[in-house]
């Protein structure tokens, strides 16, 4: 029974392995391995570089393990048996310094790149960054364009030739804002502002989402990130303005009611200083929106 089982099992495993390898071709759809902006690209390159360095630990471990298992196997192994061999200054030196050297190298990378890729640091560009304020809600994202006075739900458009500077907060539980193709994530927390600076190389449509579980609607808490040419972006702003719906306080209070998913929606005429009023709900400092009932998100 076991041998035929083993044959069947190995057949299935081969098929699975094939599926797995074929899937490798699908990696082009990976937003992380094929980034679309300078931040994500530097992060990806760092990932590759560190992986290659770490391979230097993988190889000796694998080679030594398989070699010693083969050579020193009981019965047929050819290696000399020395049951009392338990120390060697040379080996000790090698096994302590080897990992240490690798870690020192990666440690240098950590320091250099953690400062270079600090999400709070504005990106160097000839153009002024576009300021957008993102607010996490149940279960959607509100984007406020303070300079343009408009707002959208679940669609974040920005010109491809300007950096994007995001202020992020949450009007519900903690979430995490991420556009994988453009760069890493940062948490959104009520009463606090976090920042993210991103940029796209070229016009395109990327998916953004919340990556931190936040309740039933979490799987649908996604949005479109549209990188547009500067002309298209002004066209888009006008399009949003023409939507004509104002985002005043009563409508905001309607908007934050939990919904499993929310279509893209545009608002012109946003309540002035809305972002700070949302923050003030939790900090209690300054002009705050009225507090409303909390929702059961379980």
């Amino acid at each position: 029974m076991p041998s035929s089982l083993a044959v069947k099992l190995s057949k299935w495993l081969t098929i699975l392995l094939a599926v797995f390898l074929l899937e490798g071709c699908n990696l082009q759809s990976s937003p992380i391995l094929y980034p679309k902006g300078p931040v994500a690209e530097t992060e990806r390159d760092l990932l590759y570089l560190a992986s290659v360095i770490m391979l230097f630990t993988l190889l000796p471990v694998y080679l030594l393990t398989f070699w010693s298992c083969w050579r020193y196997r009981a019965g047929k192994g050819k290696g000399a048996y020395r049951p009392d061999w338990h120390k060697s200054i040379f080996v000790e030196l090698f096994i302590w310094t080897g990992p240490l050297v690798i870690i020192v190298i990666i440690g240098v990378l950590v320091v250099v790149y953690t400062y270079r890729l600090d999400p709070y640091k504005s990106l160097s560009s000839e153009q002024q960054p576009l300021k957008v304020q993102a607010v996490a809600q149940n279960w959607k994202w509100l984007f406020i364009y303070p300079e343009q006075g408009v707002a959208t739900v679940n669609e974040l458009a920005f010109p491809s030739d300007r950096p994007l500077s995001l202020d992020i907060t949450s009007d519900t539980v903690m979430t995490s804002f991420m556009i994988p193709a453009l760069g890493g994530q940062i948490y959104a927390m009520a009463g606090m502002t976090t920042h993210l600076n991103l940029m796209a190389y070229e016009p395109g449509r990327y998916q953004g989402r919340n990556t931190q579980f936040s309740g039933r609607g979490f799987p649908n808490m996604v949005f479109d990130a549209l990188s547009l040419s500067s002309n298209d972006f002004s066209g888009w702003i006008n399009h949003v303005r023409r939507a004509g719906k104002p985002l005043n306080i009563p409508r905001y209070q309607q908007l934050i009611k939990p919904e499993m998913s929310h279509p893209v929606e545009y608002f012109s005429n946003v309540e002035p200083d809305l972002f700070n009023k949302i923050l003030a709900k939790y900090t209690g400092q300054g002009d705050a929106l009225p507090r409303q009932k909390a929702n059961n998100l379980e």
């Binding site: 630990t57 471990v61 030594l64 393990t65 010693s68 298992c69 050579r71 020193y72 196997r73 009981a74 192994g77 290696g79 000399a80 048996y81 020395r82 049951p83 061999w85 338990h86 060697s88 080996v91 090698f94 096994i95 302590w96 080897g98 990992p99 240490l100 870690i103 990666i106 440690g107 950590v110």
Partner: peptide
């Protein structure tokens, strides 16, 4: 990452225990 150093040392110590043994 510093924790990786003692962990790596352990891995190698086990491998070197196997070397010159009768596994």
């Amino acid at each position: 990452m510093i924790i990786a150093v003692p962990t790596g040392v352990k891995i190698f110590d086990w491998i070197f225990t196997m070397i010159r043994g009768r596994i």
